[in-house]
Design a protein around this nucleic acid. Structure first.
Lengths: 137, 137
DNA sequence: GTTATTCCTATTAAATCTATAGGGTAATAA
DNA sequence: TTATTACCCTATAGATTTAATAGGAATAAC
């Protein structure tokens, strides 16, 4: 299952990307427009800012805004920041590799074999989809 | 993340599929060979039997065995039984469709748009992979 | 200085996953 | 028939993760 964090984060990014300009938009406005708990969204937007997707401005007239062109934001990076590893098991993860402690040999592991295919298929989708592709005209 | 239930279930299926014949194999033997808690595995094998993947024989000399040819067992059905829906959100699920309560219109939802692609990519993998493909010769 | 807004930490509530406990039931061999 | 073996089933506890809330600190505009 996709976590609500990722779901909300994607919706927020899309909303910001669909703005006519890059003026700061308040958290409250995003939350209202996308039906998201404002406090929860607050922490999500913070994560997105810390990871280089958003800029922010404090005080009156402040808010969040995209700092890249939507067509330059790949879903691979968005998913990794919000949802975590793209691989379903650590032993096939490119960025978060870990050996399974219960598995003596990855080379003959059926789970490894299947999840490698799944990872590649997902990567293919995420690499070829940018934020710009998700905006409905 | 892939649940341990699915992971263990896949390993058990592969182990049973790699047996030279279809004689019953005891739970204890599967558990030992695959480093799985026997009690946990017990419930997983039960699920697999109820869903038509395995047969079982009680009493002395009993155990579990495959009742289909490994090449006829698609990963789509295995994953649905063990892991649940293949889709990451209910609004793009083929077998478990549900409308998102926070989303007014799926047609213009960026999450829906992205997860549709992901679902299709995963289905493609699962449909084209059978248990036979996971056995290492 | 007042107001509006983001920023940050900690905590709680709920849900899910993993595993264990403990026995019940059926089949088989002798 | 008796003992044994092994599957069958339910309940529950512990651990982890997720989702959301609370409360205030810092910053900027006016």
């Amino acid at each position: 299952m996709l976590s609500k964090k990722t779901k909300y984060g994607l919706k927020a990014l899309t909303f910001l990307a669909s703005q006519p300009n890059r003026e700061p938009i308040q958290i409250a406005e995003v939350a209202k427009h996308e039906n998201i708990s404002q406090k929860f969204l607050e922490s999500i937007l913070l994560t997105l800012r810390r990871n280089g997707f958003l800029g922010s401005k404090k005080g009156k007239g402040g808010g969040y805004y995209l700092i890249k062109d939507p067509s330059e934001i790949q879903m691979t990076s968005v998913m990794r920041v919000l949802e975590g590893p793209i691989a379903m098991v650590p032993c096939v993860s490119l960025n978060f590799y870990e050996k399974c402690d219960d598995c003596p040999d990855e080379g003959i592991c059926s789970v490894n074999k299947l999840m490698l295919k799944v990872r590649d298929a997902n990567l293919e989708v995420y690499r070829n989809t940018t934020l710009a592709d998700l905006i409905t005209q």
